[in-house]
Simulated assay, not measured.
Amino acid sequence: MTWRGPTYRTVDGERIDGAWCHVWQRSRWDAEYHLDDLIVFADGAVRCQDRTDLAGLKKLLTSGRISVTRPGAPALPDEPSKWRSRHGEPLTPEGFLSEVADKIEELNGRPTTGQRCWEAIRRYQQEPEERNRVLLRDAYLAVPPHRRIYVLGDMDLQDRPLRILLTDLGEAVDGDGPVVTADMHQESLDYFRRGDEGVAREQERRAVQYADDPSGPGQSAVISHQTVFPQGWPEALGLFVLRNDYPAQIAFAGGTYPSVLHGYWALSAADAADRRLIQEAPSGREAHDLGGRAVQRADWPAIRLAVMAGLLRAKFTQHPELAGVLLSTGDATISYTGFSDSPFWRDAPDSRGRNWMGRLLELVRSELLAELSLGGHRDPGSSTVAWKSTRSQI
């Protein structure tokens, strides 16, 4: 079965995670089978039109109300040899019920039958004694039959190394395969050993290559809301200073602007008269409206990210008190929301939102922290050294 998710339901304010797959359900009205969604939840609840549990699902499968294979579909031809077959066991109601039980364990963060099988493999590797081989066989047979060929995650050998290891010496694997010898058992153990060595090498490689990855979860996300203050901006500084329309005079690219929005939209305009008009607008939002109506310079789409980054650097390096507010967000993700800016800049509740403002604020925050940590010095009248070379072109 192919499981999809995530999904969930809420019980007494608590989120219960779930997953779903397709089954065929027989209609009460015409006795015909129709494709339907079967949803399984972490608390063991099962829903397919009606709500039930594992015991109820077993009755539905036994009665034929639910079918896990398409009714009326031609049966698969018999395999000429189980050992040579590249297909797993057929999906049965019993096997599907075991898979649903596994899915419930997975949703709860508990080991599945496949993971317990790997635990048994590790145990047998450490102590290759007969009692551990018996435990391994039990763990392997607990895996839903149609899922056993995937338990090792090997698309070439599938589960053959396990089937060899679990076959007694002198017996044929699967009844029609090779007769097992002690050397074959050792080859299977060597297969798992080589896999462990490969995993260890990859983990070591990733530890080196990903050495700068965060070692743990960061702070909770900070949301920068677009807010209107009819009585004027508050005197006590808060997260609202992260907004681009917050009045903070900045010197940038040879000009002076009352806010980031003034600077951004003035620099976007192709005509010098429009630039001056935007620059002198009474508020950031009015500058935005004027800039949106003006003809943009031809290269604006290619340079606008760099311009915005430069304006933000100027704002927070030229106003240390505002930099303190930005630094107070720590390593939190900054979600820049609102309704006036395009989805390119803000975090919109759909696939269009790219949150570039939030990402640039995080970048500038990191640069400010680096200067404090490394003892660097920045000329407050400039944003970056690289930007100086392009000032005259804007």
Rank of each mutant, 00 (worst) to 15 (best):
W387E: 13
V143T: 01
E99A: 14
H146S: 13
N108C: 08
I394K: 00
P230S: 08
Q318N: 04
D274Q: 10
L57Q: 05
S351D: 15
W20Y: 15
A45Q: 13
S220A: 15
G324E: 15
L327Q: 12
W265R: 01
A298F: 11
S85A: 14
A211E: 13
Q126C: 02
W356C: 01
G218I: 08
A287L: 09
I66N: 04
A211Q: 13
M308C: 06
G353A: 05
L261I: 12
S81M: 02
A200P: 01
Y33W: 03
D37I: 07
P161G: 03
T256S: 12
R378S: 13
F192L: 02
H185P: 01
R122W: 11
S188P: 01
G88V: 03
V11F: 07
T10Y: 07
H377S: 11
F240G: 01
R275I: 07
E362N: 02
C21D: 05
R123N: 05
S220Y: 09
D12S: 14
G216L: 11
G170I: 10
L165P: 01
W265A: 00
L361D: 01
G195E: 05
S335P: 00
F41K: 04
L165Q: 03
R147M: 13
F240L: 03
A348K: 01
P301Y: 10
T52K: 06
A207N: 07
G263L: 06
V325D: 03
N355G: 04
V325Y: 08
D271G: 02
E202Q: 11
D102Y: 05
E197M: 12
Q158D: 09
E280P: 04
R4N: 12
G95A: 08
R26D: 02
G330M: 09
V68H: 02
R84I: 02
A200M: 10
T69A: 05
G153C: 08
Q231L: 11
G255S: 10
P214D: 10
L327R: 14
G13T: 08
L361S: 01
A139Q: 07
W233G: 00
L369P: 00
S63D: 14
T390S: 15
P380C: 06
C117L: 10
F252K: 00
T52P: 06
D245L: 08
R15A: 08
P230N: 07
D156Q: 15
D12R: 15
P343D: 08
R205A: 15
E371T: 08
G114E: 12
S220I: 08
I121A: 01
G56E: 07
D43L: 04
R65Q: 11
A269E: 06
N132H: 15
Y257N: 00
V295F: 06
P258G: 04
Y150A: 11
G56N: 06
S383C: 15
Q158G: 03
S98A: 15
R304F: 02
A221C: 09
P234C: 03
A251N: 10
L290M: 13
A172R: 15
R70P: 00
P217R: 14
W300A: 04
D289M: 13
P230F: 10
R352Q: 13
F41I: 01
R51F: 05
R65C: 03
P74D: 06
A172K: 15
W3Q: 04
T384Q: 09
C21R: 00
T384V: 00
R194C: 03
G198L: 14
P234M: 09
R28Y: 10
A306M: 13
G114H: 04
W387R: 14
R137C: 02
D50A: 10
E94V: 09
L361I: 03
D176P: 09
